[in-house]
Amino acid sequence: MNPAFDRWAALAFFAVGAAFVYGSLQLSHTAYGSQVGPDVFPMGLGAVLMLLDVRLLVDTFRLRPSGEKDAKGNQAHLRQFGALLLSVVVYIGLLETLGYVLSTFGFLLAGFQIMERGKWLSSVMIAAVFSIGVYGLFVGVLQGTLPGFPTWLTG
């Protein structure tokens, strides 16, 4: 185990448990026809979570770290991941403005290039086949709902 991380995680989950207990205190204590209100279950669980976190915290001091290979993703992987995450966020942000086909095509093209530079032709082909194919199948054949093309494009 990685004690530093576990300590932070214990604190974070402790806060989550406390937040749920606090939130439960604001809820009604009874329900119609029953003495048991909607607050009992989350409050109990919140308290259990807090207890478990204390236990985890104690464990981090008691147990020796088990010489974990601290293979921190090296810088290149971290940059790659950052770029990929950024493109996912941009993709989600543009999904409803640009429509499914355009935003998906853009995201896939960017994603392929982030993973490995080059091979533009096959990247463009796969991205196009996936985005148009999924849209055509889902909206055209299965009658599902996906954002279409932006109005400024279709007029």
Binding site: L84, F107, L108, G111, F112, I114, M115, E116, I126
Partner: peptide
């Protein structure tokens, strides 16, 4: 190749 696999799984 993961180059294609990973963005496709996300999509």
């Amino acid at each position: 190749p993961p180059k294609y696999l990973i963005p496709l799984i996300i999509a």
